[in-house]
Design a protein around this nucleic acid. Sequence first.
DNA 1: TTGAAAGCGCTAACAT
DNA 2: ATGTTAGCGCTTTCAA
Lengths: 341, 341
Amino acid sequence: MTNDHKRPLTLRDVSEASGVSEMTVSRVLRNKGDVSDATRQKVQDAAKRLGYVPNKIAGALASSHVNLVAVIIPSLGNMVFPEVLAGISEVLEDTELQPVVGVTDYMPEKEEKVLFEMLSWRPSGVIIAGLEHSEASRAMLRQSGIPVVEIMDIDGEPIDTCVGISHRRAGRKMAEEIISAGYKRIGFMGTKMPLDHRARKRFEGFTRTLAKAGIEIADQEFYSGGSALAKGREMTAKMITRSPDLDFLYYSNDMIGAGGLLYLLEQGIDIPGQIGLAAFNGVELLDGLPRRLATMDACRREIGVKAAQIIAARNAGLDTENETVVTLSPKLTAGDTLRRT
Amino acid sequence: MTNDHKRPLTLRDVSEASGVSEMTVSRVLRNKGDVSDATRQKVQDAAKRLGYVPNKIAGALASSHVNLVAVIIPSLGNMVFPEVLAGISEVLEDTELQPVVGVTDYMPEKEEKVLFEMLSWRPSGVIIAGLEHSEASRAMLRQSGIPVVEIMDIDGEPIDTCVGISHRRAGRKMAEEIISAGYKRIGFMGTKMPLDHRARKRFEGFTRTLAKAGIEIADQEFYSGGSALAKGREMTAKMITRSPDLDFLYYSNDMIGAGGLLYLLEQGIDIPGQIGLAAFNGVELLDGLPRRLATMDACRREIGVKAAQIIAARNAGLDTENETVVTLSPKLTAGDTLRRT
DNA sequence: TTGAAAGCGCTAACAT
DNA sequence: ATGTTAGCGCTTTCAA
């Protein structure tokens, strides 16, 4: 209420205003060390009255402790990463730690840049999506000397620790389910995959399992950008026109699956009789659709929780030494779009 | 490649490895001041070889410049804020500045906490959603001495600058459209509003305009939490059962509107003949729906862009003195769910 | 329980 | 074009 000039307040200002040494002010403001109730009160009053906001930059430099956890994800736009973030926040809220998110747009160069930027703030840990990183990124993470948790995926070599699901296995499981339901002419729709390693791995697991059963993908279509719901619709229309004999459509994510579902229902196609459908992620949105789309839960929130717990534990000095790979098991929901076996 | 101990590298390490003074190393690494190509090369080689990552904490303290912009939003979960963020990032990418996001979950106390936390990192600017903040938050923002842009809404008193739309006016416009299309028995569905000031303001603008035309909201229903699509479906079912004579449903956001739309179509209800529908936000998802839902674009990306531009300009010393309130105009899309006038 | 001194790793401002 | 000096605002360490 008193600081009319633009200079931000310092500990010294509070010290002078309260007649207590800077050091003791610092102790009060951090609840560290023993301070008499009287001085504590004086200091707190002064700090509040002045509107003092501590300078974490200086604090961090002096203590070489930064209570930040870098969280690096490809995108905020598809609902899966916000859910991971929610899991992370939930855990870190009971902690000194604070998540800071960086977005890569699925671009390795941007990942490298964001990572460099975040590491230059000397965070207490890194949570980063995926196991595929540029050599430079891997080097930075290794050198950093802080806990690193790679999330979402476990099919690969973690730098330090990883928590996620096996996307190859997820693809395989869904293929098995589809095969055992008796579907034979299967079409696939998904993102253009060079970008999205996890989608690619699901696709690989999927096709390989089909192959073992003597089935080949009968048609496929890829997209990028735009409204996923609309894309699902378009691609589905195109595909069933082009390949009218398909009896199953596998989508690499729920949004395009939902678009396809809506389209097919409008066309009066019998689902899952004439055509079965399945997708991936288990997003909340599916609950509001006319039919429950078959899907597989990606354990998003759980991944966030586990990752944050690992960072928090390591930060507290507890040695979680042992578990370098935490494997979660995605649950398959057959819903209403997959024939019952 | 050489740093096997855990101590992070310092400028001094690079200095020693390259035989160049710390100061010159610093200059090279920041592209500041004149350095001969030869030394520059030596330094860059050494830095890369060692895997040096600068310590921004120290840099920021020394220069009292932090290239961070605090972005404080209520949620990442509903697609509107990620789009604002995209606008912000787009602009800041051509800048030294970097956005750092904090989430409040629509809770004033959490906003206060997040704000305090972020200000303690001495960012170069703040972009914060809404015009409603606790007195303490407003005080912190005022004291901070940095540019503050309040976004999304303009119906109120900005602390410094604001950019957004008038939600009252948006509610009014939609009401006018509905009235002039001849609808008379209007139901409303939305979030529980104490939390969401902008939804409340739209509602106020909406009801007031109806009132002037002698119309009262015939039925209303509020929700919180859960899948918005599913909630829209449920609430709509409940409402048209309870009030079968309604001829229009106004939803406070697109997701519940979409849920309602899907439900009504399934029931074989004539839209917009028997019942007209409208919502708010203009989210991309609507493109994939069976009908184009009437909605109003909230100018999300544009808001992010403008806000970031203001911060960037002020940061560059350009005085944008003049414009303290930037008003954007949401466009109304009648779509297929509003009778043509 | 409180205070004084030293320094975290960098950069602004001066030398040279 | 390069180097030297003095802090930035805190916290750590040690002393009282």
